[in-house]
Amino acid sequence: MKTLTTLSTLGASVLAAGVALFTLSGSARAAADLELWRLDCGSIVVKDLSSFSDTFAYKGESRTLTDSCYVIRHGADYLLWDTGLPAALIGKAPDLSQPLAPSLRIDIPTQLGKIGIKPDQIGIVGISHNHFDHLGQASTFAKATMMIGAGDWESLHENPLPFGVMPALVQPWMDGKAKIDPASGDRDVFGDGSVTMLAMPGHTKGETALLVKLPQSGPVLLSGDVVHFEEQIGNNGVPPFNIDRAESLASMERMNRIAKQLNAKLVVQHDADDIGKLPAFPASAR
């Protein structure tokens, strides 16, 4: 009888421990508070837009592309998505004689200061791909871990370098003085499904997009350079400087399907018409 009582007590203890563990696990998985800001990280005047089409579209057209960066607050943690154009461009007029004429009026730390965030609070720098207009101010955040597609990290070490790649912009990581985290395939950034880097190769070997599942306003899908403007989705437009045409088209289809399936707000980062899809800085989306 005593044995049965002991076993019963032991069983109750195990059950109680299991319930406590389940409760703790559920609590740990509880959704963190999410907040997203769009930052102004420059603009690029494209003198001849036909350079963005391998099917001879856009002849005689020019366009100004936006260069956007984004800050995501996940509880007390901060992710900076892309780092825009180099701060050295501030105060310089764009050279309109060049095929691509970048310009920048304000740096990222100044904008972060306006929303009460210090550069050292950025724990992760997520990079959609390794082109200069997305890596420009990365070194300002050398204390952060850099997440970048594994293929793009490898390309930063190639000789000769691919189009648009400037390793000097990420010198702290190249020198091993800052932590690098190359991502192969999709990456759940915080481990709770709220923020996911999505593998979207084609523009570059390791191109990625970012899905942010905001609890109040709904999912936001940040395109990286899977496309540069929205009409490329409808007309299957691929720039000739993309690494792989077939992968580009497959990634465009995947991105578009994800946006539709999740009813996500697709923000094409270089499309000036997409700026209004998110609240104007310093307001945020939640």
Rank of each mutant, 00 (worst) to 15 (best):
L156M: 13
D274L: 10
D175Y: 03
N130Q: 14
A142L: 01
D271V: 07
A264I: 02
G11S: 05
T66S: 12
G202T: 02
T6R: 15
D54P: 05
D175S: 15
D192N: 15
L211P: 13
K277L: 04
S51A: 15
G42L: 03
T6A: 14
S97K: 14
L222C: 07
D271A: 10
A283K: 11
L249P: 00
T23G: 14
F141V: 04
G136R: 02
A28C: 07
S217Q: 12
M200W: 04
G185N: 10
K213G: 04
S25K: 12
R38Q: 14
C69F: 09
N263Y: 09
A250R: 12
L198V: 04
F229G: 05
N263M: 02
A32S: 14
I275T: 07
D77L: 09
R257L: 12
D95V: 03
Q111M: 11
L266H: 00
A20F: 14
T110L: 08
N235D: 12
H74M: 12
A150R: 13
P279F: 06
A144G: 10
V19K: 09
F190R: 07
E230Y: 11
I124Y: 00
G191E: 11
L24I: 10
V227P: 00
E207Q: 15
D33V: 13
Q232M: 15
G224N: 06
A150T: 00
A142N: 09
G60P: 01
A76P: 02
S184I: 06
Y78A: 12
K92C: 03
M255F: 02
V238P: 00
L249N: 13
D273A: 15
L161T: 09
Y78D: 08
D48N: 15
S194V: 03
A57Q: 07
K114N: 10
V46C: 01
A30V: 12
L7K: 09
V227W: 02
L221V: 01
F141W: 00
P282Y: 03
M197P: 06
S53P: 02
G202P: 00
V45S: 04
A101Y: 07
D273R: 11
T83P: 05
V46W: 01
S223Q: 06
S155N: 12
S27I: 03
V268A: 06
L198A: 05
L112H: 07
L104H: 02
D77C: 10
L222D: 03
T83G: 08
A178C: 09
S13R: 14
L266D: 06
S184N: 14
A272G: 02
A144E: 01
A17I: 10
G126E: 04
L135R: 04
I72V: 15
D133N: 14
P172Q: 14
S155A: 15
G113Y: 04
D54I: 04
K2Q: 09
I115R: 08
K260I: 01
D82A: 12
D188G: 11
G42H: 02
G206I: 02
